[in-house]
């Protein structure tokens, strides 16, 4: 069962929930936690496991082989991203615009644009008791997060077959990175805060997840700030609220130091257990 933890707004507590939920669940079952916020991954700050594998991740981009090229310009003509340009007698490849579709490479009549590895970042796989933790970190300056997110999910599929439940810590927002991080999940938990910002961004995330056909539940974090509008919205939209977590400075302080919350804050642990019970009660078909 794959559970994505997402939110429209950043900083609502995705990582806090994902890490604490995964560690609590791993007290009794095999769990995988994967950090898909590859631009700014933070789950690793909270999990001190043993590093069992580290690998550099790549994607393929074309590289111009000057000697083979006949300057026919087919490559530049087929590239809809303007990542391959013909400037006079030179073919210029702009890797940051390339989507690795292979069209220029395979449609080149003389094979003058072979695909070569381009670094994307690093994947690290840690183990801590019954928990497998995988994080990927995008290299600075790489524009596209989605290829690394896709490859990280492929890695989890291949390397963590024994797991009973996978939690996916997703990036904020509603753009392509979020879609790639959630599209194969069985269920999406949206974390929000009860403020107008939290509510508006939640409504965008709900629209996106419904567009993907996902079943969703909401967790309201930092209860005590803001107002009741998020509760009213969830009721009107018939979205189940699985837990309400308190706004406490103590939690923010534990988080700031990279500590786990639930062993120290009873009310937070109760919220996690309520979510795990809901997950347990889901039909086993997913």
């Amino acid at each position: 069962m794959k559970i994505a933890i997402a939110s429209g707004k950043g900083g609502t507590g995705k990582t806090t929930l994902a890490v604490n939920l995964a560690l609590r669940a791993a007290e009794s079952t095999r769990v995988t936690l994967v950090d898909l916020d590859v631009e700014e991954p933070n789950s690793g700050i909270f999990i001190k496991g043993d590093l069992i594998r580290e690998q550099q991740m790549f994607r393929l981009v074309p590289q111009w082989e000057k000697e083979l090229c006949t300057r026919c310009g087919k490559c530049a003509e087929v590239c809809l991203y303007n990542a391959v340009l013909k400037l006079g007698e030179t073919i210029m490849v702009l890797p940051q615009l390339c989507h690795s579709c292979h069209a220029c490479s395979e449609l080149c009549p003389v094979g003058a644009l072979p695909m070569r590895d381009q670094p994307l970042g690093y994947l690290r796989h840690y183990r801590l008791g019954k928990l497998d933790f995988i994080e990927s970190k995008l290299d600075i300056g790489v524009e596209m997060a989605s290829p690394l997110i896709g490859q990280t999910l492929d890695y989890v599929r291949t390397n963590c077959p024994e797991t009973n439940i996978t939690f996916q810590d997703c990036p904020p927002g509603t753009s392509c990175a979020v879609i790639n991080a959630t599209k194969h999940a069985d269920m999406v938990i949206l974390v929000t805060e009860p403020t107008p910002f939290g509510l508006y961004d939640l409504s965008l995330a709900v629209d996106t997840m419904r567009h993907l056909g996902k079943s969703i539940a909401v967790v309201i974090n930092r209860q005590g700030i803001g107002n009741e509008d998020v509760f009213r919205y969830c009721e009107a939209e018939k979205i189940p609220v699985w837990a309400v977590l308190p706004n406490r400075r103590e939690i923010a302080e534990l988080y700031s130091r990279g500590e786990i919350i639930y062993p120290k804050v009873e009310q937070f642990r109760q919220g996690l257990d309520a979510i795990l019970q809901k997950l347990d009660a889901l039909p086993r078909t997913i």
Binding site: T15, E39, E40, N42, I45, I140, G141, A252, Y255, S256, R257, G258
Partner: peptide, 20 residues
Amino acid sequence: TEPTLSGLSDLQRVWQLTAQ
């Protein structure tokens, strides 16, 4: 930024980008 380990780590990464 904010004084959390996550905030600091993310600040460092976004600054490396800005510096480019």
